[in-house]
Amino acid sequence: MSSLTRRVFDLRKAANFSNVNCIQKRNTVWPSNYIKPLATEQLTEVKQQSPEEFEKLKFVPVIAAPNHVSSSLFYNRTFDQFLKVIMRDGDKWKAIDGMRMALFEVKRIQLKKYRQAKSDEERAAIELNPLTVFEKAIENCKPLMITQKIKRGGATYQVPFPIVEKDSTFLAMKWLSDLILFRPKPRSEVFHIAMAKEIVNAYNNEGKVVKKKIDLHKLCEANKAYAHYRWS
């Protein structure tokens, strides 16, 4: 990557543009007359609203549907992404089973708190939906800035950089999954218990992953003076 492209790329990052919107995708494998795939519910909607449109759709070639998309009402994008981060050796079922058990454990922890709560206000504040807890936990783990190593005059500096939404989500997930997958041996807790506890901690803005995020923010704050190394 030349320095100019890099700078443009960084500028774009700084402006927090979504990559999808501003980079033109030239090498798409689908011809321009192909339409985006529609879910069954959408198709029935089209059929009801305009039958003529539906008749046309029958003979239009369609782009293959991305494999992560589901029309399930209980589909959760964050959960789905996290499965991809935590999966090892391509064993998706293992990842799914483990994470389902972990979120069930989260639900049990939250329900226990709910039962022990004394007033109605306390009870109302407790989130019982494990998917919401999980989403909030990942949200709490997301870093706002990161540091990158830059070599200037023989010395390497940790230079603070802004980070796009996508990357920060990935980092949060990576930290959480690595913390549980590579927890020190001998392991006192099985996977789903350890994961559930960490998720609940992150939901309450506590725990190791949130601490890691805060440490990173502190480092960025301390190295504010190196910020100009990004472009000079």
């Binding site: 009402l73 639900k107 329900l111 709910y114 939906n129 998917l131």
Partner: peptide, 13 residues
């Protein structure tokens, strides 16, 4: 309170 998902309380869910 075992099922809390809003979609689970609908007909489609």
């Amino acid at each position: 309170n075992y099922v809390n998902h809003p979609a689970a309380k609908t007909e489609m869910g």
